[in-house]
Design a protein around this nucleic acid. Sequence first.
DNA 1: ATTATATCCTGATCGC
DNA 2: TGCGATCAGGATATAA
Length: 281
Amino acid sequence: MPELPEVETVARQLSAALCGARIAEVTVFDGKLAHCELETLLGHRFEAVGRIGKQVALVLQRAKRERVLLVHLRMSGRLLWQPSAPQQRVVAPDQLLHSKLGGAKHTRLRFRCNTGTLEFVDPRRFGTCAIYPSRADVPLPGIDPLSDEFTAEALGRLLKDARQPLKPWLLRQDRIVGLGNIYASEILFRAGISPFCIAGALRASAVRRLHDQIRSTLSAAIEMCGTTFSDFQQSNGESGGFQEFLTVYEREGLPCVRCKLPIERTVQAGRSSYYCPKCQR
DNA sequence: ATTATATCCTGATCGC
DNA sequence: TGCGATCAGGATATAA
């Protein structure tokens, strides 16, 4: 589900909500997460929440020792925070089932804290957890597109020897970290570049447009709290807003916002690509 | 070095 | 209303 803007949204909201919370109870519901030794986080306090690539980094501390819980949401994962109610209220079971938190059928992991409860909910069970000693120990295979190092020149160097078509290349997390299937198509439309272009063959002017659009599209999406396509939820259970601004994704057959010709869909490396054949060359 | 394919899972949707 | 096929925003291992 979540690409960089959605993960950034979750990280920002969790950061504001749960910093200072101390973990009083850890419950692992999914055996797939058992190897992470999540129980050892008992007694830790949340110090900060950030984003590393597409992953949420929850920085924890106990007795001045830092540890980082890295959560990858993959396709369907969500991190939901429910602050403790000021007063304990009795909730009917059917109400609980539909509340943002607590009744979720697919809760994989739960941290009960003094100030609220954090749940990792993941219907498809693709999501992963890992614990690292510190943020600096988390490996980052590619460059973060919102970092200062990600200049047009840096993008040009990355692209130089790539023989792949551009759209699948943009999904490579060992080059640029954070793009996924929605934003890759959106960025290419906004940059006016065909998804079929060979990555290494872009002219300098196209590289600059691509660089501009990678940064501005991601930034705009973050401002809108991400894209809710079918089920992305912010940490408080609300929807993002960027789906209103999607130009091509899931718009096959609908008129291009620029030239009115129908948007086309094709499959590249097993994933759908959406594009306007006239506006993207 | 690239590229397709299968795989991990479940749920939603669509055609019959 | 039910059933099977197909498709999902991710990523990796393997094969070609």
